[in-house]
Design a protein around this nucleic acid. Structure first.
Length: 257
DNA sequence: ATGGCATTGCAACAATGA
């Protein structure tokens, strides 16, 4: 089973790229972020034609998450179900072939002193509460998405430039440590221990040609699923060419079910 | 070459991203 997470930065702007990429790569499950469309505007017919079921949780202009799957998606749930009135569409999950798949778009946080960073921290606390209440490390679970956190210096091309930012600071790297402590494994790191593998490059300042990137998109899995991964990596080629997303697809191959 | 911000929206540039 090939599993992918990809922040599209608008599914409308990226529809052709997405469809072409699905045809070429034939992934089994795709967690999408920043679709930036309402559920009505989602290209349901186009992905269906390529053989994918879709679970969507979108909104106008910003955010928006979805899961595509070749096999049916059951027990689809939206958000955290914690009673908090949050208009930002950032979490969706469903059951596929006996495993729970969660697609998350963690808030960016803007600057450490901003209200947006407070929202990011509170959102992450809600994520932990949601994991504790709704899921368990003993079950087959994959949480994939744009975490907007670089776990280690090895995941940042210029750590001295990014250290202290909302993407790379002790609080945020601590969040990754907590996720791993909860019972998840970073399967991309598992198969790529060496530094210098990135998933996002700034559109500005020749970020991609100079490979000044960060690894902020992750596939985290509970132990049994993680042990069944046979490879993982980043499809850098998809960051090339005209009109790319600023994120590349991140993928893992699993011996599952 | 992999290229110098991109996307959205009651539509002007402001908001947002990372």
């Amino acid at each position: 089973m090939k599993v992918v997470t990809w922040n599209l930065n608008s599914i409308r702007a990226r529809e052709e790229r997405l469809l072409s990429w699905l045809s070429r790569q034939a992934p089994d499950v795709v967690c999408l972020q920043e679709t930036k469309v309402t559920d009505e505007q989602f290209p349901h017919d186009a992905v269906k034609e390529l053989g994918y079921h879709a679970a969507v949780h979108g909104q106008k202009t910003y955010n928006g998450v979805a899961i595509l799957s070749r096999e049916p998606i059951d027990d689809i749930r939206i958000g955290f179900g914690d009673g908090v009135d949050d208009p930002q569409a950032r979490c969706i999950c469903g059951m596929i072939q006996g495993a729970r798949f969660i697609s998350v778009y963690v808030p960016n946080g803007d600057k450490p002193e901003s209200d947006k960073y407070v929202y990011k921290q509170e959102w992450l606390e809600r994520l932990f509460a949601y994991l504790d209440k709704t899921h368990a490390p003993e079950t087959p679970l994959l949480i994939s998405g744009d975490f907007n956190i670089a776990p280690e210096p090895a995941d940042v091309a210029e750590p001295d430039v990014w250290r202290g930012s909302v993407l790379f600071n002790p609080d945020m790297t601590g969040v990754i440590t907590r996720l791993l402590g909860w019972g998840l494994e970073d399967v991309v790191r598992k198969h790529n221990p060496e530094p210098g593998l990135y998933s996002w490059w700034d559109y500005r300042q020749l970020g991609f040609p100079r490979n000044k990137g960060l690894r902020i998109d992750h596939i985290l899995a509970t132990p049994e699923l993680a042990s069944r991964t046979t490879s993982a990596g980043v499809d850098r080629d998809e960051r090339k060419g005209s009109k790319p997303s600023d994120h590349a697809p991140v993928m893992a191959e699993l011996d599952w079910p």
